[in-house]
């Protein structure tokens, strides 16, 4: 146990855990984005997909895992950030970046925005604290009308805008993350990096566009709010 603790708090161990947790969250995001696309097939499709998810026996195991990964990622991020600040107590008067990218130097800030967004997003669409319309299903069971929640939410321009901005910030976070995670895990080979250099931007752009398409589609009236009989 002591050895495991030493590993987690070591400079490289912390980063490895951040990279692995980040990578797993990224995989989840890909799945989440694909699932969300069902909204374009209509209310029925999205709601029955949501119903299926919510009644899955794996739901709570999955939620607990994601929460654990996120907490590990955030706690290590804050810990590393504080250590890194402490390592440079006197700032330079002149700062000049050579290869440092905007996304890389703003990781902690993009991370903080993402964290706030995740809390809001869960309160909004998972817990339904912001708007709920419910729809009856056959067995007399309540089925949350996810479609209407989403559409009603994004009809408000400020909510849609907040989502769009947060999703772009996720794209920014990923811009540094995807390259960085391979380096952290020890992959840095010319052949391999050429592949990442092409693949990473493609993944980020597609992922961000898919996510953003939903608030934008609602905002511009492509996804109507259907009133249930």
């Amino acid at each position: 146990m002591q050895k495991l603790k030493d590993f987690i708090v070591s400079p490289i161990g912390s980063k490895v855990i951040m990279a692995l947790s980040g990578a797993m969250i990224l995989l989840f995001l890909v799945g989440h984005a694909l699932g969300n696309l069902l909204i374009f097939r209509g209310q029925e499709s999205l709601n029955s997909y949501a119903y299926w998810l919510q009644n899955s026996p794996l739901l709570w195991g999955f939620r607990a895992t994601m929460l654990l990964l996120l907490m590990l990622h955030v706690m290590l991020a804050v810990r590393l950030y504080l250590q890194n600040k402490k390592a440079r107590p006197v700032a330079y008067a002149v700062n000049k970046d050579m290869q440092l990218t905007f996304s890389a130097k703003t990781m902690i800030f993009s991370g903080a925005i993402i964290f706030a967004f995740i809390i809001f997003h869960i309160a909004h669409l998972t817990l339904g604290w912001i708007s709920t319309t419910s729809l009856e299903v056959e067995a007399g069971q309540q089925m949350i009308d996810v479609y209407s929640n989403v559409v009603a939410g994004f009809k408000l321009p400020e909510i849609a805008l907040f989502y769009v901005i947060s999703l772009l910030v996720i794209g920014l976070h990923l811009h540094h993350s995807i390259k960085s995670l391979f380096q952290t895990l020890g992959f840095h080979h010319e052949n391999f990096h050429q592949m990442i250099d092409y693949l990473a931007p493609a993944v980020i752009v597609i992922l961000t566009l898919v996510f953003i398409s939903i608030p934008l589609a609602v905002l511009f009236g492509y996804l109507p709010l259907v009133v249930q009989p």
Partner: peptide, 30 residues
């Protein structure tokens, strides 16, 4: 401090040692 994979080090190194050596260290450490 810890490495955030910014690669400013390889740009400043007077001997041009590339940051891929850090990946080698990461592998060995792991």
């Amino acid at each position: 401090g810890n490495c955030s994979n910014h690669y400013e080090c390889e740009a400043a190194c007077p001997k041009n040692i590339p940051a891929s050596y850090i990946a080698q260290l990461n592998r060995d450490f792991l």
